[in-house]
Design a protein around this nucleic acid. Structure first.
Lengths: 242, 242
DNA sequence: ACCTGAACACCGTTCAAGT
DNA sequence: ACCTGAACACCGTTCAAGT
């Protein structure tokens, strides 16, 4: 097909030169538009109007490129001021911010929870989180536990909310799944059938739409406030332990 | 190479016949052994000593096969008795069980949070969860919110814990990352450097080992108990509020 | 019904060569 | 330094044909 082959002349089509930055920007655009699977080195090269190997020269490998895309999304985070807020309020705002950004880039969100990120680009972010926890009087193992509890929740919960729908193209599975759920026997599934109106396509394992189309706002709010409430009590009762 | 081509005779090598069940079992074995990426229809066919198209006849497509593998892992869950336990205690046990099973199949865990699961196989599990919440006096939107809060935490947090390390083969990034973290300036990163011994390779974004090798037990425990504690208070204070 | 065998349209990545 | 061009060893999936 036309468009597969880059320009034949020595220079690129547009006046911009091929840079690492432009590559990452274009990659993020592809991922946002059509999902992580649609990010191929060849499609990316096509979009940039160069040969795939030109992309390799700038980013090394696909997995490295994916890391760069994740960093780019990280940079969209703007952290709240850490005065005027208690540590749990501040962390709550950070997690909310995280969710907002991830809803802008759901395909990156899903990937971020799946792949271990080892990037120094997140260090300024982490410094602020640790500083807030330290100022709250936490230290040692307890500081690490609160950190993991909250960030694990933020990354994981939002990623689960945004998990991607199967793309079997022509498929009829949403209709079939809905039919199966509405047609459930109320003797075999008494609790489920009774509460189905509040659950169907609104809860995990009972939905066919991703949180991209149907955000689980109230469930997220409840989870976040409950977690922080519980953490506040847990840290208050045995402050400074170990 | 040898081994690529199935047997030439009419029948399979071993006496077992090729069934959907055997295919799923073999697929799970491949995924557990070498990760989700190593599950290719061709490698699977090789392991079963048939042509790839024979696998297609039984499972339809790769994405359908992945769903079947997820169901297989789901079946390993054994739910606790729901008498003798309060609803939050019971849910806590379920989430712990979930984590135990996912630690047995980390590659499936990561995939489960990334892909939207629409399977009727989980319905008996869901019925019990909803029944427990209902018996606790929850209903309507509040029931759905608690459900999403807890399951989203279970799926997401554990998936984040178990996220997979990059596999760039020969790579030296673990050592480089560790060096970057230990060599941090304590004027630029005062809180981070002060707490680094408790954080390095033990917390999200500051680790190069997956939770498969270094489980985040205490962080998980704190998060789970805090979440449930908070949920108990939140539901008690405004019971029945739709 | 169940499987073989060949083919199509893709992948990520490497290597040599150009400028 | 930066990119072209060709090639290698793979993919998922479809289709026709065998038994």
């Amino acid at each position: 097909m036309a468009g597969r082959t880059p320009r034949r002349s020595g220079q690129r089509a547009n006046s911009e030169l091929l840079t690492r930055d432009l590559i990452v920007t274009t990659a993020l655009r592809l991922v946002d538009a059509d999902g992580m699977d649609s990010l191929t080195m060849r499609a990316l090269a096509d979009a940039l109007n160069v040969y795939p190997t030109a992309v390799y020269w700038h980013v090394g490998s696909k997995s490295n490129l994916i890391g760069l895309v994740a960093e780019r999304v990280f940079d969209e985070l703007t952290l709240p001021d850490d005065n005027q807020l208690s540590w749990d309020e501040w962390l709550g705002e950070v997690v909310r911010q995280w969710r907002v950004v991830m809803h802008r880039h759901p395909n990156v969100a899903v990937m971020s929870a799946a792949k271990l990120l080892t990037t120094t680009a997140a260090l300024p972010f982490i410094e602020r989180v640790v500083a807030v926890l330290q100022r709250a009087g936490l230290s040692g193992q307890q500081l690490a536990d609160v950190y993991n509890a909250v960030l694990g929740f933020a990354f994981g919960w939002v990623s689960t909310e945004l998990s991607e729908e199967p793309s079997d193209a022509d498929d009829t599975w949403p209709a079939e799944f809905e039919e199966a759920l509405t047609g459930l026997s109320n003797v075999a599934y008494p609790a489920l059938t009774r509460n189905m109106p509040d659950l169907i396509n609104r809860t995990l394992l009972l939905r066919w739409s991703s949180g991209r189309d149907r955000p689980l706002d109230s469930g997220f709010d409840l989870a976040l406030t409950s977690l922080l409430d519980g953490l506040r009590r847990a840290t208050r009762s045995r402050q400074g332990t170990s």
